[in-house]
C-alpha cells in the first residue's frame, strides 16, 4: 500500500534553529566521544598495516594451476581468451614433443599473458576454464606498479602464484 511520507511541522522548535542544532550535535558528539574515549567505532582501517581479509570468493589476480608434477594444468584451449570481455588474455599454444612424459596431453600454453591492467576482474575466464587451470582465488589485488609491463603477467609468474592458502594445485580431479 502506498503511504505518504512525513513532512515535519515547522513550528518554533524547528524554526529557531537551536534545538535541532543541539540535537544534531548530540549525535555527532556522541560519535566523537565514543571514538575518543574507549570504544572505537571507526570503520576505516590503516590499510597496509591492517589488511581486511578478503572473502574466499574474492576475485583477485589470476593464477595458473599446476598438475602434481608441476606442469601447467592449462591446455591452451583458449576458452578464457574467448570468454574474456576485456580481451586481456593472450595465449600461444605449443605441443609437447613426442616422448615427453606429458605427450599424451599434447598441448600446453607456450605463452600465456594476462594484461592485468586491461582485466576487469569479472571472473568469466575462471568460469570458462574447462580444466580449472585459471583461478582468481589468490586473494591478491592488482597493486600499483612502477611500469605498465609489471602488470603484464606471464606464464611462469602466473604458475608461481599460489592461492590464498599457498596451494598451487586445483580441485580438478582429472589426473590426465
Amino acid at each position: 500500500m502506498p503511504y505518504v511520507v512525513k513532512r515535519p511541522e515547522r513550528d518554533i522548535w524547528e524554526q529557531s534553529y537551536i534545538p535541532e542544532t543541539v540535537r544534531g550535535m548530540g549525535v555527532t558528539l556522541r560519535h566523537f566521544f565514543r571514538n575518543v574515549i574507549g570504544r572505537r567505532d571507526t570503520v576505516t582501517i590503516l590499510y597496509p598495516e591492517v589488511q581486511r581479509p578478503y572473502p574466499p570468493r574474492f576475485r583477485g589476480l589470476h593464477r595458473l594451476t599446476q598438475r602434481d608434477d608441476g606442469s601447467p594444468r592449462c591446455t591452451a584451449c583458449m576458452c578464457c581468451q574467448t570468454a574474456c570481455p576485456a580481451e586481456c588474455i593472450h595465449i600461444v599454444a605449443g605441443s609437447y614433443p613426442d616422448g615427453h612424459p606429458l605427450a599424451f596431453v599434447e598441448k600446453y600454453p607456450a605463452e600465456f599473458w594476462i594484461d592485468e591492467l586491461r582485466c576487469v576482474f569479472c571472473g568469466l575466464c575462471v568460469e570458462a576454464c574447462p580444466c580449472d587451470a585459471i583461478r582468481m582465488d589468490t586473494g591478491l589485488h592488482a597493486r600499483p606498479v612502477e611500469a605498465r609491463p609489471h602488470l603484464m603477467y606471464e606464464r611462469n609468474l602466473l604458475l608461481s602464484i599460489t592461492d590464498a592458502k599457498g596451494d598451487v594445485l586445483t580441485a580438478n580431479p582429472r589426473k590426465k
Binding site: Y54, P55, P56, R57, F58, R59, V120, F121, C122, G123, L124, E127, M136
Partner: peptide, 24 residues
C-alpha cells in the same frame, strides 16, 4: 555483497538462467 559475489562493486554475479554462486 563482496562475500557473496567476490567483488564490492563490479559483481558480474547474475547469469542467464541463474546465478554465479549460491549464497555463502
Amino acid at each position: 555483497l563482496e562475500e557473496v559475489t567476490g567483488a564490492r562493486v563490479t559483481h558480474a554475479f547474475c547469469r542467464i538462467g541463474g546465478l554465479r554462486w549460491d549464497l555463502p
